[in-house]
Design a protein around this nucleic acid. Sequence first.
RNA 1: CCGAGGGUAGCUCAGCGGUUAGAGCGGAGGACUCAUAAUCCUUUGGUCGUGGGUUCGAUCCCCACCCCUCGGACCA
Length: 677
Amino acid sequence: MAAVKRNLLVTSALPYANGAIHIGHLVEYIQTDIWVRFQRLMGNRVVYLCGDDAHGTPIMLRARSEGLAPEQFIARMNQEHRADFARFGVQFDCYYSTHSPENEALCHCFYERLKTGGHIVHRDVEQFFDPVENIFLPDRFIRGQCPACKSPDQYGDSCEICGKHYNPTDLLNPKSAVSGAVPERRSSRHFFLRLEDFREPLQKLLRTGLVDSVVANKLEEWFGKELKDWDISRDAPFFGFPIPGETDKYFYNWLDAPIGYLAALARHLGGSAADAEEYWQMEDLEVHHFIGKDIIYFHALFWPAMLLGAGLKPPKQLCVHGHLTINGEKMSKSRGTFINAAQYARHLDPQWLRYYFATRLSALPADIDLSFDDFCNRVNSELVGKLVNLISRAAPILTRLLEGRTGIVTVEALPLLNEFRAAESALAADYDQRNFAAVTRRICALADQANKFVENQAPWSLVKSDAEAARGVLTAALECGRILMIYLKPIIPDIAASVEKCLNIRPQTWRDIQDSMPSHIIKQFEHLTGRVEERKIQDMLNENKAQATPIIASPAPAAAVAGTEPLAPECSIEQFSTIDLRVARVIRAEALEASDKLMKVELDAGPLGKRTVLAGIKKAYLPEQLNGRLVIFCANLAPRKMKFGTSEGMILASGPGGTEVFLLSVDERATPGQRVH
RNA sequence: CCGAGGGUAGCUCAGCGGUUAGAGCGGAGGACUCAUAAUCCUUUGGUCGUGGGUUCGAUCCCCACCCCUCGGACCA
C-alpha cells in the first residue's frame, strides 16, 4: 500500500432526531465505521463525523405531543442515539447536532454567500395551512381521500392503496393530521436556491468520480432537463434557524443538515466556523459522505451546489448504499417490521450484526437482506466455527499443557503463514473499495486452511510425543489467528480486542501483519462470543411485533395531541356502579401474531377466577412487561367474540391507542379480585 | 409508461469478451476429540430465467420476452 498517508474526513448521514436508531440505519453506520476503522488501522488520518438532524416540523410536533420543548426532546434523542451507536461500536470523533451555535453560524455564512452570489430567489408558494394550529402542513401531515381510487385516509403525497402520486391539493376532503381541521390554501413567500446556476460544475462532478457509474447514470437523468430551484425556506412556527434579516422565515432543515457536517467538524476542532472551513479546504483532505440511496439528490446536487456557492470544495466521494430488507421483505416503518438498535442489542451480540452486514456489503448501492436463517449460518459457521474456533482450540492447549508459552512456529506452517501475509494487499484493496463481502470471503478461506492445518498436525496428540513440536504448531495456529484478527479488526473490533488480550499482545495495526509474535506467555483463554440461538431471534422478533410502529416518522403520533376526546354526558352514581371494575394480576401475556393490535392476556382475578382478555395494547407493551403486574379491568363487560377468541373483559388504559396506550396501575397491596369503587 | 440493476446448485453468492461452471452454507456418510463445542475427510447437488440469433463453440456477445428489485414520471 502507498506509503503516503491519506487525510480523510468521513461522515455518515445525520439521522433524524424524531425516532430511535433502527437496524436499517445501522447498515450505514456500521459500513462507515468499518471503513473508518480500516483506514485508521492503515495509519491514515481520519476524522469521522455525524450528529442529529434536529430541525423540522415533525420534531416540533412530536416534542409538543410529549409535552416537551423541542430542545429538550432533541437533547433526549441525542443521548439515545449516542448510546445506540456506542452499543454497536460505531466510533465517531464527534457526534453533534444541527441545532448548535456552530451550525447556525455556518448557515449564516452559506446563506450570505449564496445570496451575495445571486443564487437565491423568491417566489410565492401556495400550500395547505392548518388554521387551528397556525402552521403550514408538510405533505405527510395532510390526510384525505385518494383522488384516483377514493381510498380514505391517505397521505398528502401518495396513496398507499393504489400507489398513485398526486399533490396534496388534489386530495378529496383533506384534513390536517395534526388538528383534524380542514386545511386552507395559503400563499407565502419562499426562498429558493437556483440549482441551475451550478449545472456545469455539478455535472462535471459526476464524471470525476463523485459517485460510481451506476449512481452516475441515475443522476444523468436529472440533468436531462432543467434543474428546479430548491425551496430552502419554511414559515413560522418552525423549529430551526431563522433566516437572518427576515421575519418569520426559517431555513428548511435540509439546508442546515449537511452544513451540520461542518458544524461537527468545528466542534471536533474545538473551534469556530472559520476553523472548520480552513480544515475542509486543506488540499489533501478527502471528504467522503456515506449515504443511503434515498438521499442521493441532496448530496449530489444540493449540497455540492451549496458548497460551490459558498466557495468551498465539493466532496470527493459519495458512498451510496442500499436499503435493508428483513427476511426478504421491505422494512416498513408504518407496519412495524423494523428492529430498533437498542432492542437488537438486548437480545443479540452487536458484533454479530457487524460481521453479518460485512458479509453482505459491497460498494454497490444494492439493497441488502438480513435473513435470519442466513444470519445464524454465517455467524455460527463462519464467525464462531471457523474464526473464533481457531483461537479457542489452540490457546487452551497451550495454556494447559505447555505453560502457555509460545515458541518458534513449526516449519510446516511457513507456507501457510506466507499465504496469510500475502493476502494483505488484496484485503486492503477490498476494504478500501468497500467490498466487505469479499473481505469476509477471503478471510474465511484463510481460516479454513488454518483449521485444516491444525487438524493435520493434531497438536493435542503431538504434545504427548514431542512437546516442542506441538508448541510450534500451536504457535503457528495462534499466529494465524492473530493475523486473521487484524484483518477482522475493522469489522469486529470487540472480538479482536479480546483476542489481543488473550494473546497478551498490544493492540495490533495493519503493519503487524508482517511481524511475528515474540515468544511469550499468553493469557487464559476467555469466551469470545457464543453461537446465535434461534430462540433469541424469535424472542426479539416477537418483541418487535408486539411493539410495532414506535416513534418513527409517521404523523400518527400527532393524533395523540391531548385534549381531543370530548367529555361524555353526565352519569349518576347508580349508572357508574353498574360497571364492575376489578384488580387482576397478569398471569400470561401473548402477542397475537396474526393481529396488529391485539394481545392475549390471561388474568388472575382472585376469587373471580381466571379470565382471558384480548386487549388492544400490542403496539404499546411487550408481553414480558405485563407478566405479573397488576391491572384494572372491567369484569362485568359482556363477553365478546373476536377474531382470535372470546374476550372476557376489558383492561383499563388511557391514551389514544397505537403505541400511546397507558395501563392503569394500582398500588402494591391491592389483591386480585378486589373491586374498584 | 420510461430507466437502471439483477435472475448461476435447497440457501447466500463468486465467475466470465468463449476450453470439462465454482465457493461457502445446507443434505448424506465417515473421521477426530484440542475447541467456551467445533473442526477434518468423502459425497450429493446446476439443461448458469425463457425463446431465438451470431459463432467452430456462449452462462458470458446480440435481439425479443418473462420475473424480481430499485429508481424516474408527481414531490424533494
